[in-house]
Design a binder for these strands. Structure first.
Length: 205
DNA sequence: TAGGCCATCTGGTCCT
DNA sequence: AGGACCAGATGGCCTA
């Protein structure tokens, strides 16, 4: 059986394209499965840090991946202060080596942590996707942002709570509120232009 | 072109 | 000790 493998580090543009093309019916489980496969691969050879990751750690150092993997530590962009005490320099050197030496335990742990973090963000995003499906939207509205999803959900929950407390029929309750300009609502947390504009598209029955 | 949104990496902190 | 969670930094894409 052929094993599918999606290596984020080997092809950083591929995963971005994946997000950019995500559709509302996207299933997260296959991606989670791929990440799990990636986790299992950690016991074997690790791909080198992405250039982005290296750059973020050593923004001033002009180092290539080849430099990182095959040569002893050399700082080109940042010069060590000559006044630095010998033990301090040694400590700094140790810390830098941890990040630069391929297959160093630090790199292995960091890579595993990155994968876990990606997996965690995927689960958060899947929850956002589910929440979006419950929030009222315009028929052809573009995908809600995360912050808009949260704000609309808060307002919508407040409205549903009021409807429950009123004991009225939802549709007539909303119609009445719209007619009266929400004047009767003392606790109109949900009375935001964002939500009320969308309420006309809600099918209550 | 600036600003909004997002994914990713990272190191720190907390928890089990 | 290792994993989960979090926030900051960074860079890419998209849109007004």
């Amino acid at each position: 059986m052929e094993e599918m493998f999606f290596d984020f580090d080997q092809d950083p543009t591929a995963d971005f394209a994946f997000w950019g093309q995500m559709d509302p019916n996207f299933q997260f489980q296959p991606q989670l499965d791929n990440i799990l496969l990636d986790c299992h691969s950690l016991t074997g050879q690790l791909s080198p840090w992405s250039s982005f990751a290296c750059q973020s750690v050593f923004p001033d150092a002009q180092l290539t991946l080849t430099d990182l993997d095959s040569q002893p530590l050399q700082l080109e962009g940042a010069e060590l202060d000559s006044s630095l005490a010998a033990d301090e320099a040694h400590e700094l050197n140790n810390r830098l080596q941890c990040g630069l030496v391929p297959n160093h335990p630090y790199k292995v742990q960091r890579h595993a942590a990155n994968i876990r973090e990606r997996k965690r963000m995927l689960s958060i995003n899947s929850a956002f996707e589910e929440l979006r499906s419950y929030v009222p939207t315009f028929p052809y509205e573009k995908r809600l942002s995360k912050i808009d999803t949260l704000r609309l959900a808060i307002a919508y929950i407040a409205l549903l709570r009021e409807i429950l407390l009123s004991g009225c029929d939802p549709k007539s309750y909303v119609d009445e509120c719209m007619k009266n300009g929400y004047k009767n609502q003392t606790n109109a947390i949900w009375n935001t232009s964002d939500l009320t504009a969308r309420l006309s598209w809600v099918k209550w029955d």
